[in-house]
Amino acid sequence: MKLTLHVWRQKNAQDTGGMVRYDVPNVNEHMSFLEMLDVLNESLIEKGQDPIAFDHDCREGICGMCGMMINGKAHGGFPGTTVCQVHMRHFKDGDVIYLEPWRAKAFPVIKDLAVNRASFDRIIAAGGFISVPTGSAPDGNAIPIRKQDADLAMDAAACIGCGACVAACPNAAAALFVGAKISHLGHLPQGKVERDRRALAMVQQMNIEGFANCTNIGECEAACPKDIKLEVIARTNRDYIKAAFTERPDSTSAGAG
């Protein structure tokens, strides 16, 4: 099949950028979407033109590195699918496809379709963990965990940090990403100790990074390649509100002795 692509090209963070049109002949329906871009890039290099920069790594939908808007839909809008898992059999001859990078103040463009998602790492660094230094853990079976809780934690922990939720949200909110981590750790007994501080710290960092608020509209849930549910955002809200009204300042004598 033959396709027409309109791709966002931007040399670097300072460049203003714009859409550029490419015709791609000979697309095979068994190719993955990224393989189609590989083929286009190979031909661009042969013609001496700068290939299109896009992030990708594992190409099996788990590393979270890839991601772009395909016709205005994050990862192409196929249920539970990252761009690298989209195959060309979903397209037909003559299709016109628009490719744009994730757009958010907190995800500045590096080049073309590649963006910088370091803001997500900083949110995790603020509180997305359980403090347990190596070697200090009790036996794995010491605390039984209800299967249902372990499953709910796993549902949320499936987040790959790709940023599709932010890209799809009209407010560029990171609520689903933050909620996924808060829910993952919150469903486990091990995560309960730091629950309040985690909610306070992660929400605060999310705001400092410049992600706007959630309006509960659900675009993120539809875009999420790992089917994270809107419910996780309610959990953030619950934990945060509770923490905001119950958390006390650190005791001034803490750590002394």
Binding site: M69, A168, A173, G218, E219
Partner: peptide, 21 residues
């Protein structure tokens, strides 16, 4: 919140689809 939302995405999409809102 509207002010925050305005700032959170300084460059708009050329194409944007809504999936389930």
């Amino acid at each position: 919140l509207w002010l925050l939302q305005r700032d959170a995405r300084p460059i708009k999409y050329v194409k944007k689809a809504n999936l389930n809102s």
